[in-house]
Design a protein around this nucleic acid. Structure first.
Lengths: 197, 197
DNA sequence: ACCTGAACACCGTTCAAGT
DNA sequence: ACCTGAACACCGTTCAAGT
């Protein structure tokens, strides 16, 4: 029906790789294991992707697109400051619920040269954050300044929280459980984010 | 002379691993290559470290210690707000000049269980940041709030900038060269970091 | 057009054997 | 006490061969 069916094998390979990644981490994603889980041989993936890096790059693109959608879907409050918090929370939540996928995008970068498609997906996520900033600025609830630059600062902040939490560097104080601790850190970070002017 | 000489082989292995890491990235750090560069066999490292992860963990510890020292050494201005900027700049500069070492510490975490020694080194770096916060607070140039929590927010910010830059996600606008762009982002982030009260 | 299976050049790690 | 070198069980990738 669709102009070009991506083919069941390609879809099965991507799905298997995604499941293996989140359940067993990056070292579980071998082409042998992917092939077995998808019911094909270990070299079948090469008929649909240039190499392993290209397969992972496509997986990263899909993840980034889903993440951007998750941010947009969460930011539904009428108060723009609440909205900023909801969208930011969605970003961090998504990262923590899919840590290995998140690390695939923002981690050690095994994706050598980022493809234009991957950059486009990253821009989409960035646009979702920038939209949060612009709405808050319009409502006068956030200082002035170039929205693009402020969105970058917000991104830097959210990525810092997500990345340090995933890699286990945000472990204290131990008196609070992880979720509470993280929400309080996000609250403090956003409350301290007050662009001048 | 010293109570227990760590042995020339152990030191040579660590140095070779460090050089291979920064010059060729993580995939260049194979025990075969390390052994050859250090002038020993490929299995000699097992006489000094439990496994490859333990070797990398020790390398991460040394890096973290050096980084903390670099932050301390940079923060020498009498004005505490300038000091905050100098220390923050030293953090980001160190990360960008040793990207693979920085990623070894804060990246995909191949170091399974962090050793107590590694955690102690991380606390040292964290303490350097907290000291910057406390000095600025004492001088009345930064709002109130728990220094420990604010230092965590600062850390999150600096890590976000360093990590996104290293992984190539901070590439626009292309009208500026990388250093200028990064310094302006750091300036904006610190100017927007204004804890309430 | 898509897939297989053997083969190749790599890994980390182990272990009997040497000094 | 420290090191070697062969061996083992893995990788990603290629390629002739099949349908």
């Amino acid at each position: 029906m669709s102009p070009r069916d991506p083919g069941p094998t390609r879809a099965a390979v991507l799905l298997s790789a995604s499941q293996l990644l989140e359940s067993g981490g990056p070292e579980a994603v071998t082409l042998r294991a992917v092939g077995e889980a998808a019911g094909v041989s270990r070299s079948a993936a090469y008929r649909h992707f240039d190499d392993k890096a290209a397969l992972l790059s496509e997986l990263a693109r899909l993840t980034l697109t889903e993440m951007a959608e998750s941010i947009r879907a969460a930011a539904i409050d009428t108060d723009s400051r609440v909205n900023l918090r909801l969208g930011s929370g969605a970003y961090v939540d998504y990262a923590l619920q899919n840590p290995h996928h998140y690390q695939l995008i923002f981690g050690e970068t095994p994706l050598s040269a980022p493809t234009p498609e991957l950059e486009a997906a990253a821009d989409e996520a960035m646009a979702a954050l920038q939209h949060l900033i612009e709405r808050a600025q319009t409502a006068g609830q956030l200082g002035g300044g170039a929205p693009r630059e402020l969105a970058t600062v917000l991104w830097v902040l959210l990525h810092g929280i997500a990345a340090l939490q995933i890699t286990g560097h945000l472990h204290e104080p131990r008196t609070l459980d992880g979720d509470t601790r993280l929400n309080e850190l996000l609250d403090l970070a956003l409350a301290s984010f007050r662009p001048v002017e």
